[in-house]
Structures are given as structure tokens and as C-alpha cells.
Design a protein around this nucleic acid. Structure first.
Length: 296
RNA sequence: GCCGGGGUAGCUCAGUGGUAGAGCACUGCUCUGAAAAAGCAGUGGUCGAAGGUCCGAUUCCUUUCCCCGGCA
């Protein structure tokens, strides 16, 4: 007899998800499934804030370091692997704890959204990206007026992707659907004041820079064949350390940019999470523990 | 002390004889296989101070205070 319970721990960057989740996993006999779009990559450890082996304290962690940073990983791959991991944990009669800050990844599990089964076609995208955005949007309007009417026409990624789906599918983009929720889910979100968050981001950044650890990590990634362009795509520490190593910016600019962009990122995450009404906002371990006791 | 250049949004700066803009910051938001990505919107200034000319001055004139560079 297996259960279908799932606990989710989410929150903005630097809010303390990792520590909290490990404590809870110990307490409630759980295993952790990461929901982080950067921690999936091998070799991206310090900059992405991946737990160290020691910190895991023996709690199994899933979906960390499973992808090659030279290749692009995406939500759908995440969704498949995470579902598999969650089910296998439930089968062992342990409690899966989904932990992370990537709202889209969490949504793909919790709401079970169905994303069109058209794989990214990078050659096609490259071709489309050369065309003016307004022109692309006109084409989309012609081929799929419904999708065109609710898409952000200023966003090249969205428009290109929509066209990709329409062209390869030969028909309009399916309207967004969700499967029946497959899990009995408890979502816990960590709240912190923005002042507190900024301080935590700053402290963490200083720590990551210590002994050149983060700089060396990025150097190593590049040495192993991850291009500067690719590293910059990852954003935050990877973007600005890569720019620093290319002499595009100086050390102080690198630090300032990482700090400010991390603060922006935290706000975007909060904006995303706010949309969900199913999140229980908590301040500390105690509140989390109580809610979970009731849930289990 | 003299000669230049400058003082306009939190910061860096545009600009005009009819009470002002940009980028960044800040605030809010979007999200259909890149999501730490990619986009959108909004708030914000007695235009250094005081006089004068003018129907009207942030813009022209005078004085004054402050900053930067050069010469003494």
C-alpha cells in the first residue's frame, strides 16, 4: 500500500530552503527531490548553491547533477524525471519532499501541466530569430489566432516557441491543460522580508567568492568545454563571473551585478509564487513541522 | 585669486523662452519543452539659491553658494 503524498518546500533564493528541507526529511523520513533549474547541471555546484555531500547528512537527493551543462535541459525532461523519482520514493513508503526555487518546474509537478510534445528545434529557432519579431507575430496570428491573442508579442522566446509548435504540429498550439492532480500535496513557502533576503544574498555571495572558489568553478566549466556564451546564459553568478573572466567587467562590477540581479531574481520568484493560493507561508521550522504533522 | 567646465529624478547624464526626458535603481506584473532565462508596465524632479528682463524662465542677464580641471 503506497501513499500519494508530496511535500513541497519553496521560496526565493537564499531563503534557507536547503537547511529546512534536510531537517524535515530527517524528522519525517523523507527524501528530497530538487526543483532547481541550475542544480540539475554537473559541475555547477557553488554558484547554484547545491548541497554538499556532507550537508545532505545521508538524506537521498534526487535530480541534482544529472545533466551536462553543454546541453540544454528543460521543464519537460524535468517533469518526467521528477515524477519518476517522486513515485519511487512513495513506493518505499517514504515521503518525497520537492525543494526548490524554480516555479515553473514546481508547477509542472504540482499542477501537472501538459506541455506540447514538440521538442525544441534549435536550427529552426535560430532561423526564426533572424526574422523581425513583429513579422513572426504576424505569422503566428495567421496560423494560430488563439495563441497569438494571449501570447506576449514582445517576447521573442514565446513567439518563436509558439511558431515552432504550430509549424511542426501542423495545427494550433493546444490550449494549456493540466492533468488531474496526481498527488496529495502540501506546499510550504518560506517568507523573509526583502531586507533580510538582501542581507542573506550578500553574505552568501561573500562566502561563495572565498578562496576564489566560485571563480575557479566557472574557469573549470569553461575549460571543460562550456562556452562563455553558454555560461552567460545561465545568469547570475555564472553570467557575471564569465563576463569578469573575459575582462568584460571588473571584479567590483561582477560583485555588484550578481547582488542586484539576485535581488531581482528573488522578487521575480516571489511574484511567481504569489499567484498560487495553495501555498502555506511559513516563517520557521516549527511552523513547517506543525503543518506537516497535520498533513501526514 | 584668475580662467574655463559644470550644478536637472536615488545614480549617470540629455534637453527646451511656454513649468521637463533617457538609461540604471525602485515598485508592480507576465509566464504552453531556454525559466537564475525571456518579456511588460508604473512611481519619481519647487531643473543649486536669490534677484532681474519677459505675457511667460529650468532655458536669457546679474549676483551668490558648491563641485571639477588649468593657471597662479
Amino acid at each position: 500500500m503506497t501513499h500519494n503524498k508530496l511535500i513541497v518546500i519553496l521560496g526565493p533564493t537564499a531563503s534557507g530552503k536547503t537547511d529546512l528541507s534536510i531537517k524535515l526529511a530527517k524528522k519525517f523520513d523523507g527524501e528530497i527531490v530538487s526543483a532547481d533549474s541550475r542544480q540539475v547541471y554537473k559541475g555547477m555546484n557553488i554558484g547554484s548553491g547545491k548541497v554538499t555531500k556532507k550537508e545532505t547528512a545521508g538524506i537521498p537527493h534526487h535530480l541534482l547533477s544529472i545533466a551536462n551543462p553543454k546541453n540544454r535541459f528543460s521543464v519537460v525532461q524535468y517533469q518526467k524525471l521528477a515524477l519518476k523519482a517522486i513515485k519511487s520514493i512513495q513506493k518505499k513508503n517514504k515521503i518525497p519532499i520537492l525543494v526548490g526555487g524554480t516555479g515553473f518546474y514546481i508547477q509542472s509537478i504540482v499542477d501537472g501541466i501538459i506541455i506540447p510534445e514538440i521538442k525544441p528545434d534549435w536550427a529552426l529557432r535560430k532561423k526564426l530569430e533572424k526574422i523581425a519579431l513583429s513579422e513572426l507575430f504576424k505569422r503566428l496570428q495567421k496560423l494560430d489566432p488563439v495563441r497569438a491573442s494571449n501570447i506576449d508579442q514582445n517576447n521573442p522566446r514565446r513567439v518563436v516557441r509558439a511558431l515552432e509548435v504550430v509549424l511542426k504540429l501542423g495545427k494550433p498550439v493546444p490550449t494549456l491543460n493540466s492533468k488531474k492532480p496526481s498527488f496529495n500535496t502540501l506546499q510550504l513557502g518560506i517568507t523573509k522580508s526583502s531586507e533580510k533576503l538582501k542581507t542573506l544574498i550578500r553574505k552568501r555571495l561573500i562566502k561563495r567568492l572565498k578562496n576564489n572558489a566560485m571563480i575557479n568553478e566557472v574557469k573549470k566549466l569553461h575549460k571543460n568545454g562550456v562556452s562563455w556564451k553558454r555560461l552567460e546564459e545561465f545568469g547570475l553568478e555564472y553570467r557575471f563571473v564569465a563576463q569578469y573572466l573575459q575582462n568584460k567587467i571588473n571584479y567590483q562590477e561582477m560583485i555588484n551585478n550578481i547582488q542586484i540581479e539576485s535581488e531581482h531574481y528573488a522578487k521575480r520568484q516571489i511574484t511567481w509564487f504569489k499567484r498560487s493560493k495553495k501555498i502555506n507561508w511559513i516563517k520557521d521550522y516549527k511552523e513547517a513541522e506543525q503543518l506537516i504533522k497535520k498533513f501526514i
